[in-house]
Design a binder for these strands. Structure first.
Lengths: 332, 332
DNA sequence: GTGAAAGCGCTAACAC
DNA sequence: GTGTTAGCGCTTTCAC
């Protein structure tokens, strides 16, 4: 049997409520008893039962982290891992635990959330992707459960979120390529279903427009988030016309593009990925990539969520995290 | 206010205990009332409060996953990520949540564990590394708290654990190299502090012995788990003598070795890593590596732990997970 | 400044 | 079969 607040109370010759007050550092307790209680706690090696505390407080000091279903490469994508690290660090600092869970597929996601929320197991939830018309966001909004998403949601005014400025990030990349003399720039993105694809496409289009280059729909592809889909898209694109640069929305996609290019013996096409994965620097040629600062995204997500849970006044409902193009041989 | 068991009871005109019985599918409840209660639950959209349930049951159906401190590359090492995936899948299937936490450094680790255990927040704990004279294991043993470790512990009879057969895995690698005609084989491992280093070194020594090759201490290094340390070790080793093969205990180490070799213009030294990271296949030349099946390690760790928690009779206190050498250009 | 008592939502022993 | 009751360990009114 573990030691409870009652045991401490007995030992210190006070009532349980007094012990509770000492724990929460309540002011109107005399220093003398405070000392006595603390001593008793130390002697008995008392540790509060957080479950019991959670039940009374209706707060578990736990954040739910939902990783998306379906994507087999989920945990292989360093983005999630780095984000988790940021979340975990900040949460720990603030005394929160992280409940880690994953959906088996897209349909499963709301189900998982419903259990998490309904069971009252977590004070808030962190979503790691945003889709068009996101069912999970809709659900959490409906349930009025605190949450934050990594990615810019539809209703950017209401929802709490953190994201990079994806339009600008891609704009800068394309603009740079144009300044370097590239004129026919292809775009290969992941599924349009993901917001991030959309915003990066917008940045691409914007850069073309400002530089008076007409967008060519035959140079724009939005397929799956896989190396294979990107490989196929590239082959198709090349059949129509070989661009002098290709920008992508993910390193994984860039890998597929590079494979297709090399196979065709094409060498002078610039290439840019996103997420700055470790592998991109080991490719031949090494691939330039945009570092999205995932750990910082995670940290600030945790921050927004915890502030929200604790009703800390906030000046904003979102944070924009800076990005940085890491140039390598593929854009030299 | 969320709906409680009482609300359901009122609605169905039964007592709370009856509702509770329906939830746990207790046998001696008439089908009629069962139906009525179920209907009420559905209408009210009732979801049990797991915190309350945990308090009475003294079980949270949550597993604590502790990731080690200090190592900055913690989450970058795909081993942990893959293991997490295996753990998470199995746990979910069995209705358990995963509480994810990390220590900031080695001293912090017992502290974190103590809080986790003392707060009664988790039913069991998964440790992801084992050290010589492991403080965390000692602590959990002392507290008699269910736990399982990934890695072979000192007291392999008592503790529950999963691991690869690291002696055999390395033995097979070295034996294969010898069969291929290599005679001077170097060993570069991570810190001796980690059990895994020790076992792999044993496998290395065993293979040499069986093949009547005398071990040469100048060809054996145990340093940090970093690319840099491996790079330095290799340079030192070469100064003494260039081996015709080098085996390592981690891909990261193999990368450092390869860098040193390439810099010296040495090309005919076979090289083998461990963990079969994605990067190893993209290196030039691609690096052969032992796949340790981390996801399976995680799955079986979860299995052992949950069985232990639920007092399911078990025929064993450990599982040995198979490994597989993935041959690439570095051993061709 | 401190204690008594009620209550958080659930389960389980004990009645009937 | 079903209801009554006590209790899990804590916090928090409300007394004094």
């Amino acid at each position: 049997m573990s030691v409870t607040i009652k045991d401490v109370a007995n030992r210190a010759n006070v009532s349980p409520s007094t012990v509770s007050r000492v724990i929460s550092n309540n002011s109107r307790i005399s220093d003398a008893t405070k000392e006595r209680v603390r001593a008793a706690m130390a002697e008995l090696n008392y540790q509060p039962n957080l479950i019991a505390r959670s039940l009374t407080n209706k707060s578990t000091k736990t954040l739910g982290l939902l990783l998306p279903g379906s994507k087999a490469d989920l945990l292989l994508n360093p983005f999630f891992v780095q984000a988790m690290r940021g979340i975990s660090s900040y949460a720990k600092e603030k005394g929160y635990y992280i409940l880690f869970t994953h959906a088996d597929n897209d349909e499963d996601e709301v189900e998982v959330l419903s259990n998490l929320v309904g069971s009252q197991w977590v004070d808030g939830i962190i979503l790691t992707t945003v889709k068009d018309n996101d069912k999970s966001i809709a659900f959490l909004q409906y349930r009025k459960h605190p949450f934050v998403v990594i990615g810019k949601p539809d209703d950017e005014k209401i929802t709490y979120w953190v994201d990079n400025d994806n339009i600008k990030a891609m704009y800068d990349v394309v603009d740079l390529l144009i300044k370097k003399g590239k004129k026919n720039i292809g775009f290969i993105g992941g599924s349009h279903e993901f917001k991030v694809t959309k915003y990066r496409l917008l940045g691409y289009l914007k850069a073309l427009k400002i530089n008076n280059i007409k967008a060519d729909l035959n140079l724009i592809y939005e397929k799956d988030y896989t190396e294979e889909a990107a490989y196929e898209a590239t082959k198709e694109m090349i059949e129509y016309q070989t661009p002098d640069a290709i920008v992508t929305t993910d390193d994984l996609i860039a890998f597929g593009v590079q494979r297709a290019l090399l196979e065709q013996g094409i060498e002078d096409v610039s290439l840019v990925g996103f997420n700055n994965t470790v592998i991109s620097q080991y490719k031949k040629p090494s691939i330039s990539s945009v570092d999205i600062n995932a750990e910082k995204l995670g940290m600030f997500a945790a921050k927004l969520l915890i502030n929200q849970i604790e009703d800390t006044p906030m000046e904003t409902n979102n944070y924009i995290i800076d990005t940085k193009l890491i140039e390598r041989d593929s854009t030299k």
